[in-house]
């Protein structure tokens, strides 16, 4: 009872999603595999591609952690937009700083 009253009064839906253990373990296996790949790729002397490959893999790993472990998958739109805004602002810091550094 308490719960329903609360949710109505505050417009809340206190969440209740459940994810099986299996999904988490699969994601973890993927993360470990990506770690192995990134170490291997780094040893291959690809020149300037090394950094690109390392960062791409790091981004994929981060997305996996965020989407499954941090439950962004189940979050409502507001949190997703928040994350997008945060990343966008962070990206502009990089672009504008490098508009100086790379043309100096």
């Amino acid at each position: 009872m308490e719960q329903t009253h609360e949710s109505r009064a505050f417009g809340t839906e206190n969440h209740s999603h459940t994810v099986g253990y299996g999904t988490y373990i699969m994601v973890w296996l993927g993360l470990v595999a990506l770690t192995a790949i990134t170490v291997t790729v780094a040893g291959m002397h690809l020149g300037s591609l090394t950094l690109l490959a390392a960062l791409t893999i790091a981004c994929i790993k981060t997305s996996l952690v965020a989407y499954y472990f941090m439950h962004v998958k189940f979050d409502n739109m507001v949190i997703k937009v928040f994350i997008a805004v945060c990343l966008l602002i962070f990206l502009t810091f990089w672009i504008l700083t490098f508009s100086d550094l790379s043309f100096r």
Partner: peptide, 11 residues
């Protein structure tokens, strides 16, 4: 402060 010209124009 010695920023690049590109950056100055953009900013």
């Amino acid at each position: 402060s010695g920023m690049s010209d590109t950056a100055r124009i953009v900013f």
